[in-house]
């Protein structure tokens, strides 16, 4: 089975790419979710929740999530439902208020939290 980390977090790429195949994209939070959705349509399933963390989608610029291939070729409807609901929620938040332009120190904090949220999972699945 193939496991992929999809992320826009440069710290995740730096720290986790030696542990798992990492696809870094220099895109916004919403786009990361859309990339993951496209993979789900190709037969992958979600391993981590797209809205991991209580930091809101219009608060943190960073998102990392883990997907995996499945033996069945059919679409995993649970994963699809979760990613679509997460995209709806993200749109709701960003329409309400745009993500602020954070300074470097704050960006680093968000990157660290983003990694923390998936690191414990990564250690268990690889």
């Amino acid at each position: 089975m193939k496991t992929i980390l999809i992320t826009n977090n440069p710290l995740a790429q730096k720290k986790l790419s030696s542990k798992v195949e990492t696809h870094f994209h220099d895109v916004d939070y919403t786009k990361v979710l859309k990339i993951a959705r496209d993979y789900i349509h190709k037969g992958y399933r979600l391993l981590t929740h797209p809205l991991s963390g209580s930091v809101k989608p219009n608060e943190t610029p960073y998102k990392s999530l883990i997907i995996q291939t499945r033996e069945q070729t059919k679409i995993d409807m649970d994963s699809l439902l979760i990613i679509e609901q997460s995209l709806d929620t993200t749109k709701k938040f960003i329409d309400n208020m745009k993500t602020p332009q954070w300074n470097e120190r704050i960006k680093e904090d968000f990157q660290t939290i983003d990694i923390s949220l998936i690191e414990s999972v990564l250690d268990r699945i690889i």
């Binding site: 939290i113 949220l117 690191e119 414990s120």
Partner: peptide
């Protein structure tokens, strides 16, 4: 119980709830 990671944790008798 909140149990997702850094700044998102809860402890039960000292054990990390996640």
């Amino acid at each position: 119980l909140q149990s997702q990671g850094l700044l998102h944790d809860t402890y039960v008798y000292g054990v990390d709830a996640k």
